[in-house]
Computed example of a mutant assay.
Amino acid sequence: MRRLVQHNIPDLVYVNNIAHHISPSILDVFRSLGLPVVMYVNDYKIICPNSLLLNSAGVCKKCKGRRYYNALLHRCKRDSLIPSAVACIEAYAHYHRRIYDSVRAFLAPSQFCKERLAEFGVDREKIFVVPNFISPEDFGSKDTSSEPFCVYFGRLSKEKGLKVLIEAAKVCGHELLIIGDGELKSSLVRYAEELGARNVSFRDGMAFDELMTTVGASLFTVFPSLCYETFGRSILESFAVGKPVVASRIGAVKELVDDGVDGLLCEPGDCEELAEKMSSMFSSKQATEKMGQNGRAKALSRFTPGNQYQHLMHVWERIKP
């Protein structure tokens, strides 16, 4: 990394997802060269050993105040001792090496994310809200006709609330299509079969165009997350193809979905309320389609490449040497 950077010295270093794919140790290289670093925050890894602010009991803030040992005590990483121990040690190592001190700006995708980072000790003056964006040309030609089924698309993991969704779908009685891959895929398929939820079907992850065409043919999408989402990309993409969202009232989701305007919100983990909101969408198709139109208008006006550029230039003006 040092040779690469020294060969062509940049004005700015923008890092994203380094905790899981490269290593935060590259920040030491940039610091030694005096390069300004901007870091996009996709999850809570810099403040939470398991990245989610979530344990087996629900949303969690036990590691606040750098009490990272709680990750080990509660086995927060994969509900397993060894991964949790590794995550705990890693968090303490990053803190004692002051690995993130060289970051001049943390880009939080939502106000909620910014507040959580500040609450856990990240310098508020370094945190800037820079929401995700979509490219309108990626969504302009998608079919927005509505068929009587709803869709969940995304990662199939514990924090996404998919068991509750399957239960709610059975109560609701209408078709639910779950699209995606992940560690829970086989257990979720088995759970739906054991529950007798014959109206629930599964599809593997799709190429983007096929996925958006499928979402565009649905009546609405569902986002039943149990964790503090930093943003909610699936919600934005649903809006972009004119589909409203039934979503959990948690984390940054409340910033994206205006309840009753472009979607419906319910308490996370509440099967009965989720089923009620889903049934409401199916029974009021005209109102549902109107909410979808409102969501599309929001996505194409507020979450554009131009707005993203303005946010980034504002950050650059604040941090440039």
Rank of each mutant, 00 (worst) to 15 (best):
S157N: 11
P24E: 10
C172K: 02
I250Q: 10
L184M: 10
V253F: 11
L73F: 08
T221V: 12
T288Q: 02
I178L: 02
K290C: 12
V129F: 04
P10G: 07
R124L: 09
K298R: 15
F223T: 05
M313F: 15
R116V: 14
V122P: 00
Y69I: 14
Y309R: 15
F128Q: 01
G34A: 07
N70P: 00
I127R: 00
V241N: 10
V29I: 13
L176V: 07
K170P: 11
E267G: 08
R302C: 13
S56P: 05
F128T: 00
E194M: 07
A297K: 08
K163A: 03
E183T: 12
R203F: 06
T288K: 01
S145T: 15
C113Y: 12
S157K: 07
E289I: 15
E115N: 14
V171Q: 12
G182R: 00
S284K: 05
F139M: 11
G205C: 02
Y95D: 14
I179F: 01
F231G: 03
M291L: 04
G216W: 05
V257P: 01
T288N: 03
F303V: 14
V59G: 02
F112I: 11
F208C: 08
A169R: 06
Y40K: 05
C113K: 11
E267Y: 13
E175T: 11
E125S: 11
F149Q: 09
V86M: 05
N70K: 08
D209I: 13
G205R: 04
Y152R: 02
Y95K: 14
H74F: 09
P224N: 01
L33R: 08
G251Y: 12
V189F: 01
V222C: 04
E147R: 07
R31Q: 09
W316L: 15
S32W: 01
D43H: 10
V103G: 06
L162M: 03
A240R: 07
R296H: 09
G260N: 09
D28K: 08
T230V: 15
D270K: 11
G216Q: 13
K62S: 12
K243D: 10
D204W: 03
S218I: 04
G260M: 11
S51T: 14
Y92C: 00
G182L: 00
P10H: 02
G205H: 02
T221S: 09
R67Y: 04
H7E: 15
G292R: 05
V151L: 03
C63Y: 01
L211Q: 06
K62H: 10
A71L: 03
L300A: 07
K290F: 12
R104Q: 11
S201C: 08
H314K: 15
C60M: 09
K320E: 14
K158C: 01
D101E: 14
V38A: 01
L219R: 06
F139A: 08
